[in-house]
């Protein structure tokens, strides 16, 4: 299999198959809810099943193709991989098909193949080793519009972080198509905080941050946001978020950046792993 085919397959699966951890979280939410909230989750789960069996995109907004490439410095096909990413996006746009979602901000022109300046959005992360792991995250526009950066005064501490996250997610109401998954990035700088928020979204639901203080913050944020009552699609209910994931970086003494990356219920992700012998696995 060529690397282009492997990545195009990854993007196709990300667009049409919701990962099992997300499906399970939606099913648990359905059991907790009643009335209009339950109706929303039943519709969501039916839609997910139809997309899976018909191999069609889960949502008409097939998102901005976003890749996180964790590559071994000794991976033998780096050069090939570099050009394979945009080519795979072009291919999947035709074969799945994906909605052409890249618009030039000045001319309004859409190349029609989901590529453009800096798009697909790719984050390259070098690591020791000889294999690669490519995380694919098609990111919808409605939920991305609800993402935010707050530059907090460090004096507000952890309480200030909690309050800012909860206020922000609750104020967004039904706009990001809840129940959402929220990635929170703390520290670093303005750009790094948001990037960490997005990286936090890559972790499967149900998997906590390995450090107990961070894991505790994740649990507390979930409970606080779900106490708001915003609920599925903003129609009221117990489930406003399926999960909150937190990542952090050390911060400047004068800064406490807080990046909030909001992802809709259609939390589409796929992972492509390629070994030094070009063996490929794609999940889900």
């Amino acid at each position: 299999m060529s690397l282009v085919e492997a990545l195009a397959e990854g993007l196709a699966r990300a667009s049409t198959l919701l990962p099992q951890d997300v499906v399970r979280a939606l099913e648990r939410a359905r059991e907790r809810e009643e009335g209009p909230a339950r109706v929303q989750l039943e519709a969501i789960l039916r839609n997910v099943e139809m997309a899976r069996s018909g191999r069609v995109p889960i949502c008409q907004d097939t998102g901005t193709p976003t890749f996180f490439v964790r590559f071994g410095l000794d991976f033998p096909y780096l050069k090939e991989l570099f050009s394979a990413v945009p080519e795979a996006v072009r291919q999947a746009t035709k074969t799945v098909p994906l909605r052409p979602n890249t618009v030039h901000p000045f001319t309004g022109k859409n190349p029609g193949d989901n590529t453009g300046r800096f798009i697909p959005a790719v984050t390259w992360e070098p690591l020791p080793g000889d294999s690669v792991e490519i995380h694919i995250l098609p990111k919808g526009g409605g939920s991305e519009n609800c993402s935010a950066l707050k530059m907090l005064p460090p004096g507000v501490g952890l309480k200030g972080i909690k309050e800012a996250v909860v206020e922000h997610v609750v104020a967004a109401g039904g706009l990001p198509c809840p129940p959402t998954v929220v990635g929170v990035g703390i520290g670093g700088g303005a750009d790094l905080a948001l990037k960490l928020g997005k990286i936090a979204l890559l972790r499967p639901l149900g998997q906590r941050h390995p450090e107990p203080e961070v894991a505790a913050l994740e649990e507390e944020l979930e409970a606080l946001i779900n106490a708001s009552g915003v609920g599925p699609m903003g129609l009221g209910g117990k489930t406003t978020v399926l999960a909150v994931h937190v990542e952090y970086a050390h911060r400047h003494p004068a800064s406490l950046p807080l990046g909030i990356a909001v992802q809709c219920w259609a939390h589409r992700r796929a992972v492509v792993r390629i070994g030094p012998d070009r063996s490929v696995t794609v999940s889900p």
Binding site: E163, E220, A227, L235
Partner: peptide, 24 residues
């Protein structure tokens, strides 16, 4: 309007949530 009724309810819930955060 479910939205109007809900936003009043959410605002009441938020007062309790803010108190929980500040008291923690």
């Amino acid at each position: 309007s479910l939205y109007k009724e809900l936003s009043a309810q959410v605002e009441r819930n938020m007062e309790a949530i803010r108190a929980r955060i500040r008291g923690s």
